[in-house]
Write a protein that binds this DNA or RNA. Structure first.
Lengths: 210, 210
DNA sequence: GCAAAATTTGACCGTTTGGACAAACGTTAA
DNA sequence: TTAACGTTTGTCCAAACGGTCAAATTTTGC
């Protein structure tokens, strides 16, 4: 019943496929699926179009492979949030990890953002099948902490949304951030500054009250 | 020296151009510039491609017109932030206005996001010429409030970024928000819930301390 | 060293794309 | 009424697109 056959791949196949995926990530993340061309990806990977199509059946196959690899990486930071840990420390760590991902994997973030803007036609199933259950689970954890009086009572879903938004912003809107900060304040220190600000905001805004 | 000629337009020209721009906004905001076709826009506007190209010189012209109209609308909420007002009220109002824009003009938000993801090739000049000066000005206002002890001392630039991120998230990532919230919590009330959460977060996180 | 398998390439195909154009059709005002 | 002007359409084009294929080349296992 399983239609996916075991992919007995040679060394070259593994290397070239990785090369192509890296190039495709660069292209898809900035131009979206429809806005990207196979020729563009082939050139970025340093090979001819027919050669690229020897390793992937078609354009959609490349994109699907990227997307499939993406979501696991993407959800990892939230998965790590420990129900047994200290609420404030867990939230602070989560924000740190997400900012680091925006800094270290901006193209993955933009690939994801592109999908969202287009209405998530290719990953809606994953959103409902993997993302939603995980968020539901973590929302329960947050609610539990609130009931214990260890966290301000706020909407846990919108809390998670706000952390996604503020952190991914530094990957997705990078050009804008750099344009506004200018050459002086816009260097690599901007991620540290962002992390520091967000820490202040959330530690102050979520501290258990009354 | 001014190459822009006064556009003496007929009634039909004004109507049809608006119709085309509305259709183009829909198409460009979901597929990006390269991912959109003139045929798509023409069909969405209910006219033939040659007819559409009678009103706009080419695809880029349509997009440029949209973008030019966009930035003013986009910056209006920040412009309204009053240096003479009460810091906390001003920030609260700004967040409200931005959430309302995400709710009422999601396509404009997504058009903007698409440009950012692609590296802002067509609006970099506007970012540096209009956006940056405005943000610099408002950052000074925020810094002044902090010095007066009426606002917690945080990085004013990252404060503004975070408000942009959290509010625009509800337009740009709308599918994800709705997928996660589900049919029950994902109704039109989500904008109200978001506004309430953000208010709690920012009022707590930015309250003047010690 | 060599045959089989894997890889790379140039040439090619049908379709889609942005755009041009002249002819046909409407509208308007003298 | 009619001539001038504004609008709409069908047809067409060159370039770009995703993808195929057989032939040439390189790598691999014996």
């Amino acid at each position: 019943m399983d239609e996916t056959v075991k992919p007995r791949r040679t060394r070259i196949q593994r290397e070239k496929r990785d090369l192509i995926l890296a190039a495709a990530l660069e292209v898809f993340s900035t131009h979206g699926f429809r806005g990207s061309t196979v020729d563009q990806i082939a050139e970025a990977a340093g090979m001819s179009k027919p050669n690229l199509l020897y390793y992937f059946r078609n354009k959609e196959d490349i994109h699907a492979t990227l997307i499939a690899r993406l979501l696991d990486t993407w959800l990892a930071p939230l998965r790590e949030m420990d129900p047994e840990g200290d609420p404030m420390s867990e939230i602070r760590s989560y924000i740190r990890r997400k900012i680091e991902m925006a800094r270290d994997f901006p193209r993955e973030s933009r690939l994801f953002a592109n999908e969202m803007l287009q209405g998530a036609p290719r990953i809606m199933a994953m959103l409902e099948g993997e993302l939603k259950p995980l968020v539901d689970e973590k929302a329960k954890v947050l609610t539990g902490w609130m009931r214990q009086g260890r966290l301000a009572r706020v909407d846990p879903y919108h809390l998670i949304f706000s952390i996604w938004a503020t952190t991914q912003h530094y990957a997705d809107f990078d050009v804008q951030v750099r344009a506004v900060l200018g050459p002086d304040r816009g260097g690599e220190g901007r991620f540290e500054d962002a992390a520091r600000f967000l820490e202040q905001l959330y530690m102050g805004g979520l501290a258990a009250r009354g």
